[in-house]
């Protein structure tokens, strides 16, 4: 049986000295209890802003391997680094295999590096619901940079902008045709474009396409998007990628993101409150159960749930 976490002075002191056991147990409590998530949210916003950086891109692009190199780069500069690595959960069972940590083994025994694997817990936006508050906890703990690796993205995983101030969108060489296939929404989440696996063929073609995209964006918005080549195995180009990310962190866009993240998180807290105290009790309660039984027998239609809910509140 796990001891419950009490958010007292001893807890604050432990977190702010980056006590790993306390941090790790606190993150579990966030995931397991919505009530705890709310309590914690009252504690961890009283810090100077700390930058958070997203790493996103298609599955297998090399996001985790690239993070292994980025961590090395920041460690050499004496920075303490925390990583939240998100992998998808199974929709059917809720289970997950979280394998990003495997690629970050170079830092397994370094106390200045904290890596935590998170499952999406059924969320479809590329990160989990608790990712933002967990990142905020890590900021409160005093890490210098927070990195967030999303699940491998395809067409529609855009939530990284709600949790990270800037993001690198990681590509792999291979013609560049597939860039056209990527929905514009996904392109927009990248503040820096990284062409990883630059040891493979087809870098130049992809680079041309990405530079055109970057040009286009600069004309429209005025924001500069750097295109970098990286090799996450050798580490080539990682210093340039880090420099591009740090530059992007200075932009007004990063500041605006931070403000909108707070808004998105406030709305999330409200969503959780409504779910826990209104939605769930209704669905599991007498009227909800009766409604779903009727629905199954064809005696009612989906829209009637709204009437049942309204009646239940009267």
């Amino acid at each position: 049986m796990r001891r419950p976490i009490v958010l007292d002075d001893a807890w604050r002191a432990a977190i702010q000295s980056r006590d790993i056991a306390t941090l790790a147990r606190t993150i579990t409590a966030i995931e397991r209890s919505p009530e705890f998530l709310l309590q914690l949210s009252r504690e961890v916003f009283s810090v100077q802003p700390v930058s958070s950086i997203g790493i996103t891109g298609v599955p297998g692009a090399g996001k985790s391997t690239l993070l292994n190199q980025l961590i090395k780069h920041y460690r050499q500069a004496g920075k303490n680094i925390a990583v939240l690595a998100v992998d998808p959960s199974s929709i059917q069972t809720g289970g997950a295999v979280l394998g990003d940590r495997l690629r970050m083994q170079d830092h397994a025994l370094d106390d200045g590096v904290f890596v935590r694997s998170l499952s999406t817990k059924g969320q479809l936006g590329g990160v989990s619901e608790t990712t933002f508050i967990t990142a905020q906890l890590l900021k409160f703990a005093g890490f210098d940079r927070i990195f967030i690796e999303t699940v491998g993205i395809g067409q529609n995983e855009l939530d990284i902008v709600r949790v990270a101030d800037v993001s690198a969108l990681v590509f792999i060489p291979g013609g560049g045709d597939y860039v056209q296939g990527i929905k514009s929404g996904v392109m927009e989440v990248g503040d820096v474009f990284a062409i990883n696996k630059s040891d493979l063929d087809g870098v130049r073609a992809l680079e041309k396409v990405l530079q055109m995209e970057a040009h286009d964006r600069e004309n429209k918005t005025g924001f500069v998007t750097t295109v970098c080549r990286t090799n996450a195995i050798s580490g080539d180009g990682v210093a340039e990628l880090s420099h591009a990310l740090e530059t992007a962190l200075q932009s007004s866009q990063a500041l605006a993101r931070r403000a909108s993240q707070l808004r998105a998180f406030s709305e999330l807290l409200l969503t959780i409150e409504l779910r826990q105290h209104w939605l769930k009790p209704f669905v599991a309660g007498e009227r909800g159960t009766a409604f779903f039984a009727d629905l199954e027998r064809g005696k009612t239609q989906p829209a009637d749930i709204v009437d049942a809910f309204r009646e239940a509140q009267e």
């Binding site: 790993i20 056991a21 790790a24 147990r25 993150i27 579990t28 959960s89 289970g95 997950a96 295999v97 979280l98 394998g99 940590r101 495997l102 083994q105 397994a108 025994l109 904290f114 890596v115 935590r116 694997s117 499952s119």
Partner: peptide
């Protein structure tokens, strides 16, 4: 939720990973 930390681990690395991953 399975966290796969891979091959060629040392007992010390396993314990560290377990602590961080809780």
């Amino acid at each position: 939720e399975v966290i796969f930390s891979g091959l060629k681990q040392t007992p010390e690395k396993v314990a560290h990973a377990a602590l961080q991953e809780d």
